[in-house]
Design a protein around this nucleic acid. Structure first.
Lengths: 114, 114
DNA sequence: CCACTATTTTATTAACTGTTGAAGTTACGA
DNA sequence: TCGTAACTTCAACAGTTAATAAAATAGTGG
């Protein structure tokens, strides 16, 4: 999604932070990943438990966790052979709750014609 | 991103609403689209103005607006030959502000090893 | 060190997404 | 009704992303 601004671009609210926010949204913009976040909002869990909760493949879940972790949305902690994942901090929990709340309000309007 | 659950899947917080929320996130998960939303958070604008603000192609902006509208994030209103776009409602404005605020807090942690 | 469990990494492939030129639509004024 | 301005839609190509099998890594208990 490159921007190849040829000429002088004007009013750009905050190109950098928008990009960062967009990254976060993109990471959360996947049902499976979002469900993992919701699950972790309840409590810290190890990979096996997450896999069991959804019935997905191990490697699939691992990849999803990698993406979420890459964006700093979750953190992990090792305990023996188990690795526990949890939401990175309260900001993430807030963000998720807030978004889900608003999402409930926003009916998926298939763009009616005026 | 198909889920081909073969066996009986267990604890799924809210598959349906998560999916809806994920759709919204996905729509906002693009720097260019998010910047349009931020711009519209300021005031209603017509396509030409949005194009001018970023220096993109007309058709490019139009497609982005179509996606945002498809998710019900923005609405449009015709006035002569101009079509004005605006955030759908206050929920969207809240969602954006909230998200940007939290995003600012979340440093893009490249997943340090514990 | 070996077997075993838990989890990640790698590589492949299929599916999706964004951008854009070109063609189509709508409204308005001459 | 022609011309034109403001937009949208279509189609295609390029780049990105997700799921998964297979191989690799790390920790634990013999």
């Amino acid at each position: 999604m490159k921007h190849a601004h040829p000429g002088p671009t004007v009013a750009m609210t905050s190109s950098a932070s928008s990009e960062r926010a967009a990254q976060l949204f993109r990471a959360m913009g996947d049902g499976a990943r979002l469900r993992i976040l919701e699950l972790l909002a309840g409590k810290e869990l190890c990979v096996t438990e997450i896999v069991a909760a959804f019935g997905d493949k191990f490697s699939t879940v691992s990849q999803r966790l990698r993406i979420l972790r890459g964006e700093g949305l979750i953190v992990r902690r090792r305990e023996g052979t188990h690795i526990y994942y949890a939401l990175a901090d309260r900001h993430v929990a807030d963000l998720i709750h807030n978004a889900l709340a608003h999402a409930a309000e926003l009916e998926a309007g298939p763009a009616k014609e005026s």
